[in-house]
Design a protein around this nucleic acid. Sequence first.
DNA 1: GCCAACGTTGGC
DNA 2: GCCAACGTTGGC
Length: 162
Amino acid sequence: MPQHWLFKTDPDSFAFDDLWRAKKRTSGWDGVRNHQARNFLRDSVRVGDLVLVYHSSSDPVGVAGVARIASAPRPDPTQFDRKDDHHDPKSSRAAPTWVEVDVQALAQCPHFVTLAELRAEPRLAGLLVLRPGQRLSIQPVEAADFAVVLELAGLRPSDLGS
DNA sequence: GCCAACGTTGGC
DNA sequence: GCCAACGTTGGC
């Protein structure tokens, strides 16, 4: 059984649409610079897991699409790139601090699910992203909650089939 | 732009 | 190890 996740992104730098238009609809999910989020990527995420792609700091805020994990974790190249915003001078190629995984877009949400709509759905009371102060950019999602979000988005599980 | 909630840094 | 200062996140 796949696990389910919510990945946050600022669409000004990388939107779901950018992933949708990428070659093979696949891109490395780089730039994660929080240890707890990194641990999820490194230790818990598996190929085939399903991901809600969430747009933060935007108008509107909410779930834009669904993707799948498409690779094992590997060192995030941006940590070694001095010109990158995510450059980390304390990391080394011998012992990389940060990892990325490939994600592949599976479906755009026919209906973009706003944060207000998530909050208004009683069945999603346990969704982590709705908790005050929850800033983690990689969050686990319960299978039942994932199914509810799909429903709000106008997607069926079969829409995610490859 | 504001500001609450967190995480990190650094002096001690 | 404590904790104040500071920086970042992210909704509004």
